[in-house]
């Protein structure tokens, strides 16, 4: 009788679980009927840096965050932000062909990535390739690109969008800091200033990502930390034209609009101050 009771109990539990899993599947299916998957993408530190500095600044190693500090970030939020700084430092070193410095930052990014558990298994192969091509800057450049894409794809595939938002925020602020403070930085040049102002779109996108993907205490902490920088970017409030197709030539479609005609370029003094203040706070 006891055996019968045990078997019956097992089957009842099994049926309940099968029923509950089918209910769960139905929920997914019903969502699938009109399912929109939305991704928010932030340009990599490499893209931000090369866009702003446009090969007009000089490599300034004193600005880089010390690799020995990588163990000193205690909270998960701080470690993810720091991961963004180090990715930007790596991109900066590579863009100036600083092989030795680049390798130091690659090792830091590699070690922190493992500790943060954000790497997919494919990263192992990247490490081996790097060891085989140690002295080739092109290889380091390509490996950086691959590493970045693998990490971002892994975070997306595993629904870790909050972590992606924090890494992106760290990379964004560090990229701005490097671009604005490097020797030769043309912060009074109209073209340079306009390229800095363009980063307002990233700032706005980060705020959307924080609101969507961070838990309340972290979201509040991020918005609180970045309040000054958000305000500084909001000083630039001119209305912009909606994007439109401006023409097609040789199969290439030109998209125009996006900027008000005849807009003047505001000073970036306050952005510069806020970037330095925030970076100082986060880097310690």
């Amino acid at each position: 009788m006891k055996v019968f009771y045990n078997q019956k109990c097992t089957w009842v539990l099994a049926m309940l679980l099968i029923w509950s899993s089918s209910v769960f599947s139905m929920d997914v299916e019903s969502q699938d009927e009109e399912f929109i998957v939305e991704f928010y993408s932030i340009p990599s530190p490499d893209e931000i840096l090369t866009y702003i500095h446009n090969s007009e600044i000089q490599f300034t190693p004193r600005l880089l965050n010390d690799v020995r500090k990588s163990d000193s970030y205690n909270t998960f939020r701080d470690r993810l932000l720091a991961y963004g700084f180090y990715l930007a430092n790596l991109a900066y070193s590579i863009s100036f062909e600083q092989n030795h410095t680049g390798l130091q930052y690659f090792n830091t990014v590699d070690e922190m990535g493992r500790q943060l558990n954000i790497f997919p298994p494919e990263v192992e192969e990247l490490g081996h390739r790097l060891m085989r091509n140690m002295n080739q800057m092109d290889s380091l450049n390509l490996i950086y690109d691959e590493l970045y894409l693998l990490v971002i794809a892994n975070l997306h595939d595993t629904d870790r969008f909050g972590e992606y938002a924090l890494i992106s925020a760290g990379g964004f602020v560090e990229s701005l800091y490097l671009a604005l403070n490097s020797d030769g930085s043309k912060i009074h040049d109209d073209g340079f200033r306009m390229r800095v102002w363009d980063q307002k779109m990233i700032m706005d996108q980060l705020v959307v990502m924080f609101n969507r993907h961070l838990n309340e205490p972290v979201r509040k902490a991020m918005l609180n930390d970045m309040e000054g920088l958000i305000d500084a970017f909001n000083e630039f409030t001119i209305e912009t034209e909606s994007p439109k197709v401006a023409g097609t030539s040789n199969g290439v479609i030109t998209i125009g609009g996006g900027r008000a005609t005849g807009s003047t370029v505001n000073s970036i003094r306050r952005i510069h101050e806020e970037v330095n203040k925030l970076r100082g706070k986060w880097v310690n």
Binding site: D32, F39, S41, Y148, H156
Partner: peptide
């Protein structure tokens, strides 16, 4: 930084908010 793989299904739309 956005090249990536994803899955598509019936009535499924994937949106990338891109700068």
């Amino acid at each position: 930084s956005v090249s990536r793989a994803f899955t598509l299904g019936k009535d499924h739309v994937v949106r990338f908010n891109q700068i």
